[in-house]
Amino acid sequence: MERWTQVNLFKVSVILRKEWLEMFKNKYVMLMTTLLPLLFVVLPLGFLFITGRPDAKMSGLEDIANAPAFAGMDPRAAAQILLIQQFMFYFLMMPLIIPVYVASYSIIGEKQQHTLEPLLATPITVTDLLLGKALSAFIPAIGVTWLAYLVYAVIARFLTSFTVWKYIVSPIWVLAIVLLGPLLGILAINVGVIVSSRVNDVRLAEQISGLLVLPVVLVGLPLTAAKILVSWPMFVAGLAAVLALDVVVLWIAVRLFKRETILTRWK
């Protein structure tokens, strides 16, 4: 009998190596893994550059500065922080989007190439297989997210005031990127596994899994519209919600990712 607690790191590394060898040969996945972070870094930096110029005109500055969250703050800095907050949510969307591309190709690719049966016939546990596949999507997604945030934070220091920059690297956002990002990544991978087990088309799997970003957008947009900044209670509540979702979705993914289920029930 296989136990979920038994992990053979060598086998996990073999799967990881195999996944990455395939990933590097897949131009579409490579493009998505590099283009998206680049876009999410360039957009806010461009915004900071344009709005940071002395001659830049911004409307509604007084309105924003009068909001309780920005009391006593320079109106231009207040407006920049409010809009920058929306861009900060992009960094939480990255670990949701990138693993979906990698995981969908990883699992549906196996189905399309009919490689699951010979793979499952080897002396590998499904834990090692799932872990190898999950890590192959998780590591690049989180690595790219953290790297993009680091690049953004460093360059932003030269494009904006210290007040605005302090918000970009505030503990709440650093913790969000460092803690919430990986939890969102785990969520995306498990949703990717569940969706990929039911469909045979990579694009369809991406579209279905892509719906995951909606909650993040739905949290970010109203906050900006209401001129409210993310607070610690909100952060803790978000963290707890994602953690709970992770547990539920992981439970479903593990139930689906069984040798016999994969061979006889996956379509």
Partner: peptide, 19 residues
């Protein structure tokens, strides 16, 4: 059931390692 994007040698090496 082979990995189309991998070379013939890599396909066999991956499985030899798993075995």
């Amino acid at each position: 059931g082979l990995y189309d994007r991998l070379s013939a040698e890599k396909n066999l090496i991956i499985f030899a390692d798993l075995y």
